[in-house]
Amino acid sequence: MDQSASSPASIGLDAVSKSYDGRVRAVDAVSLDVKPGEFFSLLGPSGCGKTTTLRMIAGFETVDTGRIRVGDRDVTDVPVHKRDMGMVFQSYALFPHRTVAENVAFGLRMRKVPKAEIEERVRAALALVALTGFEDRRPGQLSGGQQQRVALARAIVIRPPVLLCDEPLGALDRKLRQQMQFELKQLQKELGVTLVFVTHDQEEALAMSDRIAVMNAGRIEQIGTPTEIYDRPRTRFVADFIGEINLIERPGGKALAVRPEKIVLGAPGAVLDGTIDSASFLGGQTLYRVALSDGRQMLVKETNAGERPVRSVGDKVGLAWAAADGVELEA
């Protein structure tokens, strides 16, 4: 595939800050480094600053302080149209008055690529997103999933060193989203492009990313691989935001975090004892709510093995976990 011709670029943010009203910082001294060819996610709840961060990388927003670098180039003051990036939006943002082929050709036309080459590259890009034969349709005639593929083709056809995705799958239904997650990941690997992906969906981030930056209130809470983020959350916020977790408060304001599936249920007399309050059958697993004697509640996930029956509400149980599975949170 010659789409991979341009070499992926690294991205560096150095203490970038942005405030819209001069008081609250939407983005507060964010620093991060995205490696060439990396699938990098900005994850967090709405209003955490992830989208603003992405928009500053794209150039839609100016930065108040700090620098942004793409590859060796400082792009902090470079206008949007000269940053040479591809981007996919949640609302697709296709040009409704143009055909699919014209949409995809747009970036190439702006770059004054010869006509014959545009045609060839548009064809290839559409083939890549499995939309061959849709060239002459208008965006309004396509389904949401198809529109997002067109948007993707429009972004990658210019062979950008950097591809930005702003919640690109947010408007799709669950099943389609999972399929698109897979396809996008495949495509990114195939093209080797550096991809910055904004999402509020932690499962999506975990499934797709090479690394994730979890953001909260304009700041980065933790950067790490999905496993690191999941297994070794550094803060209460990260622990709580990613998946389900039990927090066991420690003196001095610290806490110990244990994932429900790391807890082993046994006879009473273990680290903690409790009574099963409720049991939710999840298919491969069962989720138990266990009430401890001191009133706290713990979540426990147990894999359903054939020979062990599902436990009943009211059963007395003991809870235990390997020392390595308990994470001491920093804050």
Binding site: F60, F89, F95, F106, M110
Partner: peptide, 27 residues
């Protein structure tokens, strides 16, 4: 008007003038 459409044009290489004539005006 979805302004993301204009942003999409800009990020893919259209100068402000071209964004106006290629996207804003037709829409």
């Amino acid at each position: 008007f979805d302004r993301r459409i204009e942003e999409a044009a800009a990020v893919h290489g259209a100068s402000p003038a071209r964004v106006f004539f290629e996207v804003t005006l037709p829409l």
